[in-house]
Design a protein around this nucleic acid. Structure first.
Lengths: 162, 162
DNA sequence: ACCAGACACTTGATCCTTCAACCGTTGGCG
DNA sequence: CGCCAACGGTTGAAGGATCAAGTGTCTGGT
């Protein structure tokens, strides 16, 4: 019935699980210690900083940070209390709310970026060849795409395939 | 000052972050829905099932699941309440506690394994070449190793390097 | 014009994870 | 022997993520 993983796949899977289990905490821990930020907080600020007017709709920001709207909403509330971000109702449509990076948020991002990038470099990229980096991009992209597809497959239609 | 990421690295990093952000929840969600298990719960049961006597010391299990002792302790308590696992003081040393998989835990694992493996296969391995799998193992292993090293570097000695 | 359903979000409860503090045990050293 | 630092593990509180349910808005069909 079940097609189990062969030895190569099993080893690769164990390692990938290791990355998920260890890398997130490692990034969180550095950012938390140095700037009282989660890695996800940082990602939100970073994505906003790269957008026109440093502003995005909640949905767009959620898509770019790979997060659920619910998760994002909680985090934006937190960042808003901290003065890093502000919500505005969109003039285009009354159901979208725009999130904008404040000067305070920009300053925090600028302060946090070097340490974070240094951590990423030293934990991930240091010692990788250009081919490794290319392979990483390819495989990681493949996985993200497959997850995206499967989400569409299960939320899109439920009644087919029976 | 800071050595920023070049374009290739940045794209690869964005994708890897995407994997961490999306894959864990995807695995959790399937296991949660079908068997009321976290991916981490599952990993604990799986690691125990592959050990002699289906038993490990807390520290060993923590190492194999890439978890902190604290996290593991909470989870083992939960699995214990559920009857999947039991704690025993070790006869060898009074400070280690042994965790053993119960028959109930074994049954749960056997029931959950096919669906979980199917999910992993379809989200990760389907469509990857053998070279991709090898690259994944190599790169992921590299990252885990670097994190391990850096942990030793910062917890081992604090007073040196000044 | 109307209504059903989808969309864009928000909220509160619940659960999971982390953090700091703690306890008893053990190994090493004077 | 007696001390102390490190080890192995547990706990409770605090913060983060998820889930289910809710609000208000927009759209498409009739």
């Amino acid at each position: 019935m079940t097609r189990w993983l062969d030895d190569d796949e099993q080893r690769a899977w164990l390692r990938l699980a290791g990355v998920m289990l260890k890398l997130s905490p490692a990034l969180d821990s550095q950012l938390q210690r140095d700037h009282d930020l989660t890695h996800f907080d940082y990602l939100c600020l970073a994505m906003l900083s790269e957008s026109d007017d440093r502003t995005l709709a909640m949905s767009d920001l959620a898509a770019r940070t790979n997060a659920s709207l619910s998760r994002l909403s909680h985090v934006v509330s937190k960042l808003e209390r901290r003065g890093c971000v502000h919500r505005t109702p969109s003039p285009r449509s009354r159901r979208v709310t725009l999130v904008g990076l404040t000067d305070e948020g920009w300053r925090l991002l600028v302060a946090a970026a070097p340490g974070h990038v240094e951590t990423v470099r030293s934990l991930v990229f240091e010692g990788l060849t250009r081919e490794d980096v290319a392979a990483l991009e390819r495989v990681a992209g493949h996985i993200v795409d497959r997850i995206e597809e499967s989400r569409l497959r299960t939320t899109g239609r439920d009644s087919l395939s029976g």
